[in-house]
Design a protein around this nucleic acid. Structure first.
Lengths: 335, 335
DNA sequence: CGACCCCGATCCACCGCCTCG
DNA sequence: TCGAGGCGGTGGATCGGGGTC
């Protein structure tokens, strides 16, 4: 800054003002001169100094349970894009769904002086959101919701219903659910919407067909195994997450059943690979890029002290061969 | 700090030194008293102030092309674990394989005063690594290599050879390659190792069977389409990345061919979902968690001014049904 | 012609921590 | 163990010069 000021022939504070987004009380000529000098010198403001002085680090924290979850990493891409555009940088922390780890990671973020947090790993049984609230740290939930906290998510109850109606229309009368984690809104709401639609059709789904083994490939495999062990075998399975669905595919395969032929399968999120599987996977699409961008936008609003509303993004069913190709025993095909 | 010092009944500078990792010239009793006071007050040192004063932000940057690449997100998990253990935080930046974007993101990282960079998106045609070198910013390459720069990666030439030998042993005499991005070491080396092994067996692979369409599901689909357009159809395909392999599966399916039955397919990285596909995918395993941890370790060494060696991790072939189940036209099955 | 005002630039104290003397 | 200075920006307070009535 000293150097820039010297080169431009002005006082450092004048240089500082000239470099601000919208310089005030500085002549256009001076601004131009200073900016040219800054460019020539390759000047880069020291973020630590600015943060110390202003009290704002322009750093935000993003808490996820695992970044290897495809749905989360695509959501994060949206956060990153919006954050970068607003001059913020994002620090991601893996919470691993362990309460102790999550609080530790939040501690580390707070010590960094982050301006706000995007909580993408909210759980019904934990207190990270409450703690942020109590500490007065701006935060917004993404992907998962929690009553009383602002969030951006897909309308998961509706998404579950969409999956169910699709299967019902195809003539299915029994279905199982790989329900993810029962302590997350995503697992709970998608499952609830699905079961509700079946119940509304007079075909309630017994609890033993609902396997809450968690999210991810391995968890999906376990869910598939549990479901296969129940008799009689359902003609359809709803997995509340696409990678979980892939695990289900593996377990069904091991049990000698073929998805898309003798079992229908619906996933959730519509990640890119769903369409490329040997039997393309029917999935409920969520707009995760939008979710991430919106979450960042809301966080900026909260940081600015504006009140923020929760937002529900609409889900969209994308039918593919994993349901369209499956036969429905004991039912006539739809018109 | 003032508060902590007051509560402990000492001078702020004494408190500061008591809170240091290994306090010097302070009595044990004082250290204990100060630390107790800090704990009671929930004292959190201001990272910006410390960074400004010491010149070290304890922040590192990680450059990836996309975090939605499963291989990279698992690698990042290793980086994150090692960084956290060492008291560092990682800022991830998506470079999107666009040179301009990458340099911009590096600019942003530098402005943050990051202590070092893990470059996981190195390309043969670009200059980010050179620039970091020139600027004197400590950095280490991960996943991809570049001649003359320290890196941690899988021995990709060997990995390609493993894939080829496996197919050769099964009796395949023709193969195509979904070769990823030709300007990355991962695409280039894996492909080179594979072709070399086929050439060594007297079965060189013509260029038209090598599709360098990039990484990822969509790129894999394009590669599969290109390969299908060539005649005669090869009995095996090697995709240099598992998600790319999934795209290949989709394209082959669209062309009426079935992986594991009439085409053998080998992927790379052995991501978790490979084993769960309807036809489990043979893949060359890379230890990406280890890769990330090691990269962080090497970066810390470089930050400390120690010279660092490049490291090659050994690949491991994991045979599954996508190759074991495929018939080999015109060849007798292996003994 | 003098008093006043306003705009552009400058001065300086300070953010919180670290470390030398 | 204490005291003080300074890391590098920031922004309120202040100053000065030129135009205006």
């Amino acid at each position: 800054m000293q150097d820039v000021a010297r080169l431009a022939g002005v006082h450092p504070s004048t240089a500082s003002r000239s470099l601000a987004e919208s310089p005030v009380r500085i002549s256009a000529a001076t601004v131009a001169r200073v900016r040219a000098a800054a460019r020539d010198l390759g000047y880069r403001p020291n973020a630590s100094a600015a943060a110390l002085r202003t009290g704002s680090s322009r750093l935000i924290g993003v808490l996820v349970h695992r970044l290897t979850d495809l749905a989360l990493s695509t959501m994060y891409a949206g956060v990153d894009a919006a954050a970068t555009a607003a001059g913020y940088s994002a620090v991601v922390a893996n919470g691993l769904d362990d309460p102790a780890v999550r609080h530790e990671r939040v501690d580390a973020l707070l010590a960094r002086g982050i301006d706000g947090v995007i909580l993408a790993d909210a759980r019904l049984d934990d207190t990270v959101a409450e703690r942020l609230e109590r500490l007065g740290v701006p935060y917004v939930l993404a992907m998962r919701t929690l009553p009383g906290h602002a969030s951006v998510s897909t309308n998961d109850v509706e998404g579950g219903r969409l999956a169910a109606r699709h299967l019902l229309e195809l003539g299915h009368r029994t279905a199982a659910v790989a329900a993810g984690d029962a302590l997350t809104s995503t697992g709970r709401d998608r499952t609830a919407g699905f079961r509700q639609a079946f119940a509304d059709a007079g075909l309630p789904i017994p609890d033993r067909y609902v396997a809450s083994t968690g999210f991810g490939v391995a968890a999906g495999h376990r869910a598939g195994e549990l479901i296969c062990r129940q008799g009689p075998a359902p003609s359809a399975v709803f997995a509340v997450d696409d990678l979980t669905a892939v695990g289900v595919i593996g377990a069904l395969r091991d049990a000698g059943r073929t998805v898309g032929t003798d079992v229908a399968l619906v996933g959730y999120n519509d990640v890119e690979l769903a369409a490329e599987l040997p039997v393309p996977l029917t999935s409920v699409r969520s707009d995760r890029d939008q979710m991430g961008r919106l979450a960042m936008q809301l966080l900026l609003d909260r940081i600015a002290g504006r009140p923020v509303p929760s937002t529900l993004l609409p889900p969209l069913l994308v039918p593919r061969a994993s349901t369209l190709g499956a036969s429905v025993p004991g039912a006539s095909p739809p018109a």
